[in-house]
Amino acid sequence: MKGYMYILLCSDGSYYTGSTNDLERRLAQHQNGEGANHTKKRLPVSLLYYEEYQRIDEAFYREKQVQG
């Protein structure tokens, strides 16, 4: 299953990094206030960057690298 690591730009200028197997669905969740606590308080958000991986665990690993 494909995976994506993504970076969002929040309305207050902060960033959010996440991973998912369905990028479009996850972005819609963030925009609707159904995403992480960080993003729901800082709407709207915009997709700044993403990387695609063959497996979701690779995307999750990359997310942790970027966050660290």
Rank of each mutant, 00 (worst) to 15 (best):
F60V: 15
F60M: 11
R26V: 07
L48E: 10
L9F: 00
E63K: 12
S46E: 09
H30A: 04
Y16M: 01
K2Q: 12
G18E: 06
E58W: 11
Q67C: 09
E24T: 13
H30R: 07
L47Y: 05
E58T: 12
L27E: 04
Y50H: 15
M1S: 10
S46N: 06
G68D: 09
K2M: 10
V45G: 02
G35N: 05
K2T: 08
L8A: 01
T17W: 03
Y61M: 11
R42I: 02
Q54D: 15
R26A: 05
G13N: 03
M5V: 13
I56K: 11
N37C: 13
I7C: 04
T17Y: 02
Y4M: 00
E51K: 15
F60R: 15
Y53L: 11
V66D: 07
K40F: 07
G3D: 00
G35E: 04
L47E: 08
Y6C: 01
G68W: 09
K64G: 04
G13F: 03
E24K: 13
A36Y: 07
T17N: 02
Y6R: 01
E51A: 15
E52G: 11
S14M: 02
D22K: 10
L47F: 01
Q67N: 15
Y6F: 06
L9G: 01
P44V: 08
R26P: 04
L8K: 00
D12S: 05
S46M: 12
V45D: 03
Y4I: 00
D12N: 12
Y53M: 11
Y53I: 11
K41L: 13
R62V: 04
V45R: 03
A28C: 12
P44M: 10
L9V: 08
E24I: 10
D22R: 08
Y50W: 13
E63M: 08
Q67W: 06
Q54Y: 12
Y53C: 08
N32R: 15
M5A: 10
Y53A: 06
H30L: 09
V66I: 14
D22G: 11
H38A: 07
G3Q: 02
G13M: 04
T39V: 14
Y50G: 07
G3S: 02
Q67T: 06
V45T: 09
K2V: 05
P44E: 04
K40Y: 06
K64V: 05
D57W: 11
D57L: 08
Q67M: 13
T20R: 03
R26L: 07
Y15N: 04
Q67K: 15
Y49P: 07
Q54S: 15
L23S: 03
Y61H: 12
L47C: 04
R55I: 11
D22S: 09
T20Q: 02
Y15W: 05
L9R: 05
N32S: 13
S19N: 07
G35T: 09
Y61R: 15
L48M: 09
Y4P: 00
Q29E: 15
E52I: 14
E34Q: 13
E51S: 13
N37G: 12
Q65W: 03
D12G: 05
G18Q: 02
H30P: 04
A59P: 03
H30F: 08
H38Q: 10
E63Y: 04
S19C: 06
E52A: 13
V45M: 06
Y53S: 05
L43R: 05
G33V: 07
V66Y: 10
Y4G: 00
C10L: 13
K41G: 09
Q65L: 12
